[in-house]
């Protein structure tokens, strides 16, 4: 681990309790530019809370978060977003009353770009919609689009913000198989273009295929981190949190034929 440059996103010892429950319990993670860090764990493991803390929506009880070496854990969500950290939502909240393209324009107008003209924002939004292959629905009312399209809309809006760091909270939940493939290719491409991506996802297979490193959360604590293959080989972790049968039947198969999707330089392992 010879990191001479500060990671794009550095999370250190973050703690968050809700009443007696420790939702996030001393989690440390680092995501470098150009890599996908997959975060998995069962329901209630604290994945979404972690994303909420990084994006500034929820304030941590303890711990520090830095974006390119600059502390951001005391900033408000809009300040974090304007610096270049964009997020998507597990349950997408499209801005009702706005069309699909207007939803995406909001990202260009208020994200790091701070676009002053709505015309310029529209052009950027068109590009972002094309990237997620939703261009044909640009003028649709967002209450009339499907769940999968909502997910794409959410991602397009995050892209329109021109972020360095993308926090993707289950971007594939509710998305059909073919559309999933499109999004997976897009996410891999975004990482290659230099973005740091933190990917929280329930579809474990996808995380294993496209992540450079994987972190496993359980009861708010990080119990394993490393290249997907190493983590998958950690029998104890996998048996406890993904189920033995799942490993046997699902993971070991695609792990072989998904080699091209897995980046080779899986450094930063434990």
């Amino acid at each position: 681990m010879s990191a001479t440059v500060a990671p794009a996103l550095d999370v250190r010892g973050v703690v968050k309790g809700f009443g007696a429950v420790r939702a996030v319990d001393g989690v440390s993670l680092a995501v470098r530019s150009g890599e996908v860090l997959g975060v998995v764990g069962p329901n209630g493991a604290g994945k979404s809370t972690l994303v909420n803390i990084i994006s500034g929506l929820v304030k941590a009880d303890a711990g520090e978060i830095a974006y390119r070496g600059v502390p951001i854990h005391r900033l408000s969500p809009d300040e974090v977003a304007r610096l270049g950290v964009a997020r998507t939502f597990q349950i997408v909240k499209p801005l009702r009353d706005l069309s699909v393209i207007e939803n995406v324009m909001v990202g260009a107008l208020f994200g790091r770009r701070q676009c002053r003209s709505t015309r310029e924002a529209r052009r950027i939004a068109e590009e972002a919609l094309a990237q997620v292959q939703l261009g044909h629905r640009a003028e649709a009312e967002c209450r009339k689009i499907s769940t999968g399209e909502t997910k794409k809309l959410d991602l397009a809006r995050a892209l329109a913000m021109d972020p360095d760091v993308l926090l993707l909270d289950e971007p594939l939940a509710g998305v059909g198989a073919r559309e999933s493939q499109t999004l997976i290719e897009l996410i891999v491409g975004l990482a290659k273009s230099g973005k740091a991506i933190l990917l929280v996802e329930h579809v474990v297979r996808v995380v294993w295929t496209i992540s450079d490193r994987v972190a496993v959360l359980h009861h708010g604590a990080k119990i394993a981190e490393g290249p997907p293959k190493e983590v998958a080989a950690d029998d104890q972790v996998m048996a406890a949190y993904l189920g033995e049968r799942y490993i046997r039947e699902v993971l070991q198969r695609p792990a072989d034929d998904a080699e091209p999707g897995v980046s080779s330089d899986g450094d930063g392992g434990p």
Binding site: D78, A81, L95, D97, L98, C115, T118, M161
Partner: peptide, 25 residues
């Protein structure tokens, strides 16, 4: 029609999300 108005309409739809898109709510 303005940028400011897009911010307001985002706040109306979902204030937390609006903040995450960079809007000073």
């Amino acid at each position: 029609v303005s940028r400011f108005g897009y911010g307001l309409r985002s706040i109306k739809a979902d204030e937390d999300a609006a903040a995450c898109f960079g809007i000073n709510t």
